[in-house]
Computed example of a mutant assay.
Amino acid sequence: MRGFRDRTAIAGVGYTPFSRDSGVSTLTLAARAIRAALDDAGLTVADVDALATHRVGDSVPPWVVAPALGVPAVTWYLDQFGGGSVSHSVVAQAAMAVAAGVARTVVCYRAVNARSETRMGRAQGAAFDVQYQAPYGYFAPPQQFAMAARAHMNAYGTTHEQLGRIAVRQRAHAAKNERALKREPITLDEYLASRWIAEPLRLLDCCLETDGACAVVVTSRERARDLRRPPVLISGAAWGGGDSLFSGAGSAPGRATDLTVTEAARLAPRLYAMAGAGPEDIDVAELYDCFTYSVLVQLEDYGFCVKGEGGAYVESGGLPVNTHGGFLSEGYVHGINHIAEAVAQLRGTAGDRQVPGAEVALSTAQPGYVLAGTSALVLRSGR
């Protein structure tokens, strides 16, 4: 199960500012984040031979970005249709391309005007499963995750206060992050006073609508060591799935549907086996936080606590999670900004929010409630 463990590395990360109105196109956002990531790595556009992204019709594909940037020749590209569930598979597949020798320098990016242009989660589109949701007015992600969160509450006694602690803690991290859209600390009482979006989820349970872009540079381990920044090794990468909220989340042959189990529970053993690590080895986790509940359920499904004890684990403090403030407070760039934060932590360059001695990080995608799949990375310091 070693796969391409530690054969590739993230050598650069780049951001645009996060805002509620970027004032520019998604192409411009993508180009700016890519150039920032290349500069961080000490590379130029002339070094790029591959591009990778994921999108849901709300951004620009590599075959538009490449000529706009002036990339001399593209030997490999990935234009993956899909939401947050595939966000980490983009970087994983870039690493696989580098390890296989079909690309040398891959820039993975996500650009989105999710507030000012294409509102994320708006009830629209003609996906195959909409016909089953439409009669019930069951369209938007807050409704969908609310169903799973309620199931967890009913099964295990998970409380609003436990979800609130996630929001409060992540805002405290964001207060130390100059990129974050929301830096003003919040209290648990303020969380509980925030308005309902879809019970049991309140406003402060939900991620931010954000305009912005983020990019990471993937290359070989050997080459990364000669570049500007300390390399962060891609030790484990896994993606896949089978069931979604609409097709039987948590189901398996001989087992009834269980909305409290996500695809992450099935992915985690493969991920850890490839990385040669387990949950006990993880120093910091950047867990996909479209909603507070997705953090809680992933703490269980990635093995940091047993099923049903996620709420108690959150109350106890536990592992440092979403040290940049996450999608709840930094901004929602659909997955890649989690990877970039993990890189900062493993480089030791996260400033006031640095986790002391961080050597191994887990970064994850949407755990599979909406799209029938998920993806995740285990990253390791190459310093």
Score class of each variant (00 low, 15 high):
Phe128Leu: 07
Ala92Ile: 01
Val91Cys: 05
Val106Ile: 06
Val98Met: 08
Val86Thr: 13
Ala111His: 08
Gly125Arg: 01
Arg115Gly: 03
Ala94Trp: 04
Ser116Ala: 04
Gln143Leu: 13
Cys108Ala: 15
Arg115Leu: 07
Ala94Met: 03
Thr105His: 12
Ala114Leu: 04
Met147Cys: 08
Val98Tyr: 12
Leu163Trp: 15
Ser89Lys: 02
Thr105Asp: 10
Ala100Ser: 12
His88Trp: 01
Ala97Phe: 04
Ala95Asp: 07
Ala114Glu: 05
Arg150Cys: 07
Pro141Val: 07
Asn113Pro: 02
Val106Leu: 08
Leu163Thr: 13
Ala100Gly: 09
Ala146Cys: 11
Cys108Phe: 08
Met153Thr: 05
Thr159Phe: 11
Ser87Arg: 00
Val130Trp: 06
Gln144Asn: 11
Ala127Arg: 04
Ser85Cys: 08
Ser87Leu: 01
Asp129Glu: 13
Val91Asp: 06
Gly125Leu: 00
Phe81Asp: 13
Asp129Lys: 07
Ala114Met: 05
Tyr138Trp: 07
Met120Val: 13
Ala140Leu: 05
Gln93Pro: 00
Asn154Ser: 13
Val107Asp: 09
Ser89Arg: 02
Ala94Glu: 11
Leu163Met: 15
Ala134Asp: 14
Arg122Glu: 14
Arg104Asp: 14
Glu161Trp: 10
Ala103Val: 01
Gly157Arg: 05
Ala94Asn: 06
Gln131Val: 12
Pro141Arg: 07
Phe145Leu: 10
Gly164Pro: 08
Met96Ser: 14
Ala146Asp: 15
Ala155Val: 05
Gly101Tyr: 03
Tyr132Gly: 11
Ser89Pro: 00
Gln133Ala: 14
Phe81Asn: 13
Val106Thr: 11
Ala94Arg: 01
Ala99Tyr: 10
Ala126Glu: 09
Val112Phe: 14
Phe139Thr: 04
Tyr156Lys: 10
Gln93Glu: 12
Gly101Ala: 02
His88Asn: 06
Met96His: 12
Gly137Lys: 00
Ala146Phe: 14
Pro135Arg: 11
Ala148Tyr: 05
Ser87Ala: 12
Val112Leu: 11
Tyr132Pro: 01
Val130Asp: 13
Gln162Ser: 15
Gln143Pro: 02
Arg150His: 10
Ala155Lys: 08
Thr118Ala: 14
Tyr109Ile: 12
Val102Leu: 06
Arg115Ala: 12
Ala126Val: 05
Asp129Pro: 01
Ser89Ile: 01
Thr105Met: 07
Val112Arg: 07
Leu163His: 14
Tyr136Ala: 06
Ser116Met: 02
Arg110Pro: 01
Gln162His: 14
Gln144Asp: 06
Phe139Cys: 03
Arg115Ser: 14
Ala99Gln: 11
Ala140Gly: 03
Met96Ile: 13
Met120Pro: 00
Gln162Met: 15
Tyr132Arg: 10
Thr118Ser: 14
Met147Ser: 08
Val106Ser: 10
Phe139Ser: 08
Gly125Asn: 02
Gly101Phe: 03
Gln124Pro: 00
Val130Thr: 10
Arg110Leu: 02
Phe139His: 09
Asp129Met: 12
Ala92Asp: 07
Arg150Ile: 11
Asp129Leu: 07
Met153Gly: 06
Thr159Cys: 09
Tyr156Arg: 09
Val112Gly: 03
